[in-house]
Amino acid sequence: MNVVVCIKQVPETTQVKIDPITKNLIREGVKSIINPYDLYAIEEGVRIVEQHGGKVTVVTMGPPQAEAALREAISLGADEAILVSDRAFAGADTLATSYTLAMAIKKIKDYDLIICGKQAIDGDTAQVGPGIAAHLDIPQITYVRKIEALEEKSITAQRTTEEGYEVLQSPLPCLLTVVKEINNPRIPSLKGKMKAKNAAILTWKAADIEAESDRLGIAGSPTEVWKIYTPPARSKGQIYDGDPEGAVNAIVAVLKEHLI
């Protein structure tokens, strides 16, 4: 069973702050991490391979420094890593990103499953996974919370819905996007970290994946960011300290109009 896991390096959102005066993003000291949802994708891929044999290949599209995310993925059990990196990819929106990753996966060729995290925490779009499936014209099961059965030619998985879940069956190859409930990602092992330090990371450029240049990066991106701004701050609220009874009465009075 050969599994491809697509990951993204993202800034740790919790550290992204806005300068209150200049209204600019403060980026100093912001750490880059593997998108948290992608950790579940890596773990699921590694577990599948531990059980069924084969290998896990992690792929990321990003700048050269995204290599660190790939090394971390190897420390978590992935076997091979490919960095898809080229200046031509800069400015890619989800359409161009999913195209680029799909072309890289086509080059990998021998795969049974593609696993992605349900979304990335910096963009929160949840579009790239299904986009890759559409580019490759393979079926998809999104929001997977459990793989019920995995056979040579098919997969049965639970897909989370707003009301509960559905059980879907799909032939392979198939693309999954996974949610947090699917597993509990492992902590890297010492042996894994040492392996990751010395692992060879393949780098593929636009020419390597035989992509059409007008479908990459900014040229292949229909959407553009027109404006970025800081959301208006909430005005300072009313804080009651001491006299709980009085505080409760005041709040009940105010809320009555909103609730009734």
């Binding site: 902590i187 890297p188 092992s189 010492l190 970290k193 040492m194 330090k197």
Partner: peptide, 9 residues
């Protein structure tokens, strides 16, 4: 390097 890894893990 290895000791840092032990500490980090």
């Amino acid at each position: 390097e290895e000791q840092k890894m032990i500490r980090d893990i």
